[in-house]
Write a protein that binds this DNA or RNA. Structure first.
Lengths: 335, 335
DNA sequence: GGACGAAATGTGAACGCAAACATGCGCGGT
DNA sequence: ACCGCGCATGTTTGCGTTCACATTTCGTCC
């Protein structure tokens, strides 16, 4: 920095001012300094800046170390959004979302003096770890506990599940069965409750709840059961992979989709359109969720005083494909 | 740090020595210092350390901002491995793997004074950006150009493709067709060349190459063509998602798998076992690749002098399922 | 034309740490 | 008894930046 200052014929402080876009710098010297910076290929040292300012242009993300589609997409989308605003993203994956692991991951990030923290915390056990965060660390939780009061961004699971269920009812089915995700996931719980309330509002019977773990294997396992129930003509699965396993089980038992059974999934993984048959599913807008998270986080980072405790809910949309038909087998996509 | 020193009755430098596990510290004072650290809840400031040492415990990863299974798994696996050794991982996703984007991402990382760099660079255009790296930045390329001389970790695409092709030939098929990935990906090129050489070695005819883009949609598109060729009884696809699209296309044309057509995929995505039929595929060991990368990177970070320009190839394994049978339709999984 | 204020720039210090160098202490060898 | 050497610890310095404050420059108003 001194070298730049010398070359530009100014003091190091003026260089600093140019770098930080301070106001009281004359156009003329600004150009001189920028020229010197370019000529010397100078790059400011982030570590030094972090040392003196106590913060950095890095956002810490805590997420579960998983190959699950939803969290993975969320992470990718967030990275992209953050990069676009000049923030780097530091990822700390944890194997389990238990209190201890999350607390450790958070501490690692605080050590690094991150400017803010994003926690993708879809399970209840994550709550306590976040409760005891020091002072006013900017924090946004994604897919966290809907009951908590902190800043939260979440896909509207309930609305998505309602849409899926109502879509099946609209096709003429008596009721809709559901294979859920793991019960400790908020996402799973929200989808269950949307499914239940849609059925209740329509005055339909609520069939027993089947529980999966997001995997195709769990869809297959539950499918073995459902395939033998002739009254199960409409099934809403908590995600597309469960639906895939279910499709496989139904096919093995000779039950045709959508002729005998209609299915709606959740996530709209890119492959869903190529399942046999193409899967009607609910598409969450991961990009919108990521952008909302970043926006709320930046608001907290910038206004240090105001406690921005907003929350944002992202509405998903239903993507109709061929896996839904009226009961009895008329092969037709209902409107 | 001063507070800790005062409480322990030593100088700040002794505290520093304890922190860095220097040798010449007596057991007695070490305990005193550690007690003081614990009591005050002191945490060293990484920024200050980075400032004075010129490096940090952060590894920068450059990867394509994509939802593709392979790179995503690789990233996840690497994060986990790095975290286990006390390194944080800073991810810089780029939208396109062109020279400019990669160079930018690399510069962002160098600004942050990362200890080392991992570039997941499956396409040729990434090469030039890495060629002009400053001095001796520890660098490992994953899935990069096999021809380059830098430190490289890669899944053995050729061996995997050979195994897939030979598996189909062993089932009795006349020859094997291939739907490849995008031609600018090394992964895709390796799989093509493994496929070709296996056919050549077996003295079989090499059918025209079909090209996809990793997506199920591209498998479907190519499948429309293949479904009308009765002689295409065995198909090796560059990944499982292409295979899924292909399955869909074949099914629409009434060609049964494996009775009429046998298929082998690549990646072993968790859902592959639940395709209709369950897909025989090649499983790369992402964890092993990630561990190898980290190992090579740490070697470079520690031995600043020695130019460790090793390369590591990870052998994939074939997972036999029901999508392969002898031609003519005997439904049987060949050994 | 001089004084005044705002804009532009410079000066010194401090951020928290590790490296280099300096000190003190005890021990063994001749 | 003396020297010298190794070990444990203390002191000083500087990493590259920003902040708080000091200083200069310039335009403006009466």
């Amino acid at each position: 920095m001194m070298d730049v200052a010398r070359l530009a014929g100014v003091s190091h402080q003026t260089v600093s001012r140019v770098l930080n876009e301070h106001k009281n710098v004359s156009e003329q010297t600004r150009l001189k300094v920028q020229a010197a910076i370019a000529e010397l290929g100078y790059r400011p040292d982030r570590a030094a800046r972090a040392l003196v300012t106590g913060t950095s242009k890095v956002i810490g993300v805590v997420t579960q170390n998983t190959a699950l589609y939803g969290p993975a997409m969320m992470l990718t989308a967030f990275e992209e959004a953050a990069l676009a605003t000049g923030f780097a993203v530091n990822v700390s994956s944890v194997r389990n979302l238990d209190e201890r692991s999350i607390a450790d991951a958070v501490e690692r990030h605080l050590d690094q003096r991150v400017a803010g923290l994003v926690v993708i915390a879809p399970v209840a056990s994550a709550g306590p770890a976040l409760a005891q965060l020091p002072e006013h660390v900017p924090l946004v939780t994604i897919d966290g506990d809907p009951e908590r009061t902190s800043t939260l961004v979440t896909v509207d699971q309930v609305a998505g599940a309602r849409a899926a269920t109502e879509h099946l009812l609209a096709a003429g089915h008596e009721t809709v069965w559901h294979i859920s995700g793991p019960s400790d996931w908020f996402d799973a719980a929200g989808r269950v409750s949307g499914w239940e309330s849609a059925l209740r509002d329509a005055g339909k019977e609520i069939p027993p709840l089947l529980t999966g773990d997001w995997s195709a294997e769990s869809g297959y396992r539950n499918g073995q059961l459902l395939a033998r129930l002739p009254e199960a003509t409409a099934i809403f699965t908590a995600n597309d992979h469960i639906a895939l396993g279910l499709l496989r089980a139904l096919s093995e038992h000779g039950r045709r989709v959508p002729d005998d059974v209609s299915i709606v999934g959740f996530d709209d993984v890119p492959e869903a359109a190529f399942y046999t048959p193409p899967l009607t599913t609910v598409r969450p807008d991961f990009d919108a969720a990521a952008r909302a998270s970043l926006e709320l986080l930046l608001a907290q980072i910038e206004e240090r005083g105001a406690d921005v405790a907003a929350r944002r809910t992202i509405a998903p949309s239903l993507v109709a494909r061929e896996s839904v038909a009226p009961p009895g087998g008329r092969v037709r996509v209902p409107s």
